[in-house]
């Protein structure tokens, strides 16, 4: 589909990749860090405030600063991807730690008592039980990533944000509106997907109490 002189499909695909890949990557990085913060009070005292502080760095500053730091081309999507990965890690470290904290002590005690080793306990019991809290964190990270991708358009990285920046320059309201509506719709769509995935992975969470 073409409109306003752009291949919209291409913009949508670029937008989705730039938003989704960093969320998944950020989750993979945040899991061990969050686990560490859950296990060690010392690690938590450093990791949680640090990740909170990371989130306060302006996105545009990061996107511009990363090429200076890593030597990537200024127009590379990697700059946006890395920025969003950092934000996701910043959001999820605390989420992961809190999701693991929320697993009832009776359950972890029972798991240890029946003979789980630490790795089995983490992957067989703690992480599955952390899914509902973790899903909530991922959804926040995902929505935030979908909106932040558009900032990349300011430095020329293609996404639906490009429709906004270019439309603004051309004083073309329909183009700006298409960019905004499109990116909001994508954010909603992926939010629903994360929610559905979380629910599929935790069917027990909706089993009501009582008989």
């Amino acid at each position: 589909m073409r409109a306003f002189g752009y291949d919209i499909d291409e913009l949508v695909i670029a937008h989705v990749l730039l938003a989704v890949v960093p969320v998944i990557l950020g989750l993979v990085i945040a899991l061990p860090l969050g686990w560490w913060a859950h296990r060690s009070a010392g690690a938590r005292r450093v990791l949680v405030p640090l990740s909170g502080a990371l989130y306060t760095v302006p996105s545009l500053a990061l996107i511009v600063f990363i090429p200076v730091l890593l030597g990537t081309p200024i127009l590379s999507p990697v700059n946006v991807g890395l920025t969003l990965t950092i934000y996701t890690v910043a959001l999820l470290v605390r989420s992961v730690a809190e999701a693991l904290d929320a697993v009832p002590a009776t359950v972890t005690t029972a798991a240890t008592a029946v003979g789980y080793r630490p790795a089995g306990l983490l992957f067989g019991v703690q992480l599955p039980l952390a899914v509902p809290v973790l899903t909530a964190g991922i959804r926040v990270a995902s929505v935030s990533a979908f909106s932040l991708v558009t900032v990349g358009a300011l430095v020329g990285i293609q996404s639906l944000g490009t429709l906004m920046t270019d439309g603004f320059q051309q004083d073309y309201t329909a183009m700006v509106a298409t960019g905004i509506v499109g990116s909001v719709l994508l954010a909603f769509l992926f939010d629903a997907l994360w929610l559905a995935l979380g629910r599929t992975l935790s069917p027990w969470a909706r089993a009501g109490a009582g008989v």
Binding site: T106, A110, V125, L129
Partner: peptide
Amino acid sequence: GYVIQQAGLFPHR
């Protein structure tokens, strides 16, 4: 065998 107060069942199984 180990039985704990409040059963300590695994809620996800």
